[in-house]
């Protein structure tokens, strides 16, 4: 129950991000979630899009360095303490979260979080054992 995140190498110079989002926009690819991690010299852009395969081949053909990373999308109750509850289950199970970020918008009182962990399968099992189903691609509008 994982979805594809596209991870992109960003050189630290003006316009790099605009170029990549511009390419996606021209090809009618919709961003569902976005996160950037950076050092002084470079960064990693992590995105969830509605058409992962089309977006990856588009970026590759434009000379962008990227990798496809399996991540887990979790629906979190959109109320105070909602995320803390989920994180508690994860920490209890001894799962180390590499990084996480949120998906744009929410629906029916649910907010979505993207989790990157070493063992995605284990995370899915832990969540299920607490009655939390990982979000499917369709729920997030991914084709």
């Amino acid at each position: 129950m994982t979805i594809h995140q596209i991870s992109v190498f960003l050189e630290n110079r003006a316009g790099q991000l605009a170029e990549i989002t511009g390419l996606l926009s021209e090809n009618h690819i919709d961003l569902r979630a976005l996160n950037i991690a950076e050092t002084a010299d470079y960064g990693v852009l992590r995105i969830i899009v509605d058409q992962p395969e089309a977006a990856a081949s588009l970026l590759l053909s434009n000379g962008v360095i990227l990798s496809m990373t399996p991540v887990v999308a979790v629906s979190v109750p959109d109320r105070p303490g909602g995320l803390a509850e989920v994180l508690h289950f994860i920490s209890e199970a001894g799962i180390d979260v590499e990084y996480m970020y949120s998906v744009f918008g929410n629906s029916a009182g649910k907010a979505y979080m993207i989790f990157r962990v070493a063992d995605a399968k284990k995370l899915v099992e832990v969540l299920k054992s607490h009655g939390i189903a990982p979000a499917t691609g369709e729920e997030l509008g991914i084709h």
Binding site: A37, T39, L66, S67
Partner: peptide
């Protein structure tokens, strides 16, 4: 591509 990773 070989060197790149989603993890900084």
């Amino acid at each position: 591509p070989e060197m790149f990773s989603d993890q900084l």
